[in-house]
Design a protein around this nucleic acid. Sequence first.
RNA 1: CGGGGUGUAGCUCAGCUUGGCUAGAGCGCUUGCUUCGGGAGCAAGAGGUCGCAGGUUCGAAUCCUGUCACCCCGACCA
Length: 480
Amino acid sequence: MADDKKITKRADDYSAWYQDIVLRAELADYSPVRGCMVFRPRGYAIWENIQRDMDRRFKETGHVNAYFPLMIPESFMKKEAQHVEGFAPECAVVTHGGGEKLEEPLVIRPTSETIIGSMYAKWVQSYRDLPILINQWANVVRWEMRTRLFLRTTEFLWQEGHTVHETHDEAWEEVVRMLGVYRSFAEEMLAVPVIAGRKSDSERFAGALTTLCIEGLMQDGKALQCGTSHDLGQNFTKAFDIKYLGRDGKQAFAWSTSWGVSTRLIGALIMAHSDDQGLVMPPNVAPEPVVIVPIWKNDDEKALVLGKAHELAQALKACGIKPHVDDRENLKPGFKYNEWELRGVPVRVELGPRDVASSQCVLARRVSGTGKETVPLAQAATRIGEVLKEIQAFLFERALAYRKEHTTSVSTYDQFKQVLDGKGGFVRANWDGTKETEARIKEETKATIRCIPDDDHAPTGNDVLSGAPGKHSVLYARAY
RNA sequence: CGGGGUGUAGCUCAGCUUGGCUAGAGCGCUUGCUUCGGGAGCAAGAGGUCGCAGGUUCGAAUCCUGUCACCCCGACCA
């Protein structure tokens, strides 16, 4: 009843708010191991929903799943120069096993390009063996100095696609295709609008020629990278000797790609939609899209109301909607309402004796509400289906409006800094294409080039900082 | 690794300055009864080697030394 029921307001302390939401909605918890987190059932359910839909999209684009080992011989990591350099500082290394020191240490995968590359070298002989289109769902470990639940932890879950192609053109097509898959997934399922584009050289994946990405914008005005797709060129195929006999009878190195999204997406979901009342979940990935709260005073009413509640649940299941009947005895309905709101349930159905008597129920929505709505039981399932769609669309539109509001084009460095320190968000500016400018802006403002958007046009103006002719029109932001 | 903070019941914390009797509160938990349409009430109960290790003392949650852990803020990253 006192303050312990409240969660921190976003305006007061955004990080504390985020932490409150994750812990209070029981999505995750801290673990005994520093930097590692526990995915609690409600948080893991979101990941399962993400996996199910994304896996379907991967299969539809011709991919198959496989699984490669957690531990990678240390020497593999060293075969691609930039790759080692990029990942060495954050690798966990196993030095002992079976009570003995290992002859060669094993790296816990921070990503699997190397071990998968070593296998592909065996599997690829001829152009007829290409393309290879494999995805794996796995955990990876990257030693992090500072961690945040879902957004950055030492161990996290993800999927990594690794493909090999005959030509660079085909590989590039794949890179673009998968970024498109990520983009539509983020927008359709997570209701998070994202900007698709290309990373600058300094933000590129260690060992890639080009990294494409989707970037989302959170409610505190900071950007969050939501997925990446890499054109690895022949860097790894040369390092691991992935060669094929071509149509022309000559040996050639293949071209490879990799792409991934992680459980960080759950952090994006939370930060994009939730409010000061708690979690807000888009229906398409919510652990519980619909909760039915039965109301009763005595055993007779309980039997009556619960019976109807389960009937309604059946009707919803028949429509492909997953309902949860909250029949806990010891809690009053009012308490349950508040709890499910904190947990982000999109639609709550209230069903009491008076409703049963008049064959109706009451719908309450977590967002976009115009008060409660009374619906005849016979039409409830259909109506709930409609409301869920409305909420899904509403969340996307609201997030999109926020992003439009928080994307500002600037032509001077003063404006640039003013926007960053003011409303935040994406700042669109011309860039001269040099590392030096990028580094100085990062140094001075903590903003990085999030991406060179797909609609990059030859800029007419000059670089905001250096004043040199602009090469690209890019999006800057402070980022997670 | 630098700066700041915190370790006492499942959670949030009080007690420590000025050592002393059986270590407390609220919430949560268990049992029972009454409640139940927006965070229920009463009653009884369970639950703590006071982060850890030394030291001072007749006596330490409290004082001293050391140590560990975690959180927050800065330098790397999906």
